[in-house]
Design a protein around this nucleic acid. Sequence first.
DNA 1: CTTGAGCTTCCAGTAACTGGAAACATTATA
DNA 2: TATAATGTTTCCAGTTACTGGAAGCTCAAG
Lengths: 132, 132
Amino acid sequence: MNIGAASEKSGLPAKTIRYYEDIGLLTADRASNGYRDYSIADVHRMRFIQRSRHLGFSVEECRQLLSLYHDKERESADVKALAEAKLAEIDRKLVELAELRDTLRHLVRNCHGDSRPDCPILDGLSRSDHTQ
Amino acid sequence: MNIGAASEKSGLPAKTIRYYEDIGLLTADRASNGYRDYSIADVHRMRFIQRSRHLGFSVEECRQLLSLYHDKERESADVKALAEAKLAEIDRKLVELAELRDTLRHLVRNCHGDSRPDCPILDGLSRSDHTQ
DNA sequence: CTTGAGCTTCCAGTAACTGGAAACATTATA
DNA sequence: TATAATGTTTCCAGTTACTGGAAGCTCAAG
């Protein structure tokens, strides 16, 4: 399939797909006319990257995540360790995101809009730790 | 408190705090010596931004989120609508993140590492929609 | 009173796109 | 079949969101 169709199916702009090829995050077959030619598996990879980027992972982190996706030596200790680290990071993000949602909900429903120091949500915010 | 302390408490690099001031995302009082002087409420705002950025919201989106945080006219229809939109977006991100976690877990535990088209996780990936 | 850490501004560089020009390929319409 | 519109190519420039480094001022410790 052409880049336009791949773009539509993956959610990545065609421009971005070409850029990812430039930096070696994706590869592409070429048709006889010179057009890039993508498979379903390529689209899966794009979608995987699109999702990871959308959720705040850097391109380098996406490269690592993709290596988990690609790597045939799934048993090697360092790949396992990387996978566990990424899973833990995702779990932390899930918690953070849930907190952000609760903060916003609370702001909309319960707070007065001023910056009163006794606003209960501010306590909640200051309680959260930020170890990274 | 000085920028160093605010940085440590908020998780934002001092450089980034100054940058956010440049683009009008944050403001700062100044002490008599010219140093920036931050309150606890300022740190809360920083933390709020740090979290939102870390979770994939753009600076412009953070500006909107902050307006929810600040706005004293919490009752106006457009602010309410923006809040609801952002909450829905966060909920979508929560789903996406959970899916990414499941994908990764599955890849680590069940898949073979090759790109076989019958790998069950690939089906899962292709099933997810990407309407935005 | 000096040494070092922390702060200031400014300017340049990087990461990750994003837009636009010029040219070739394909598809749709007359 | 001619032509116009759309899609694709490469390349180069611009944008967003930082990030690093220089030069100079301020402050706390010894």
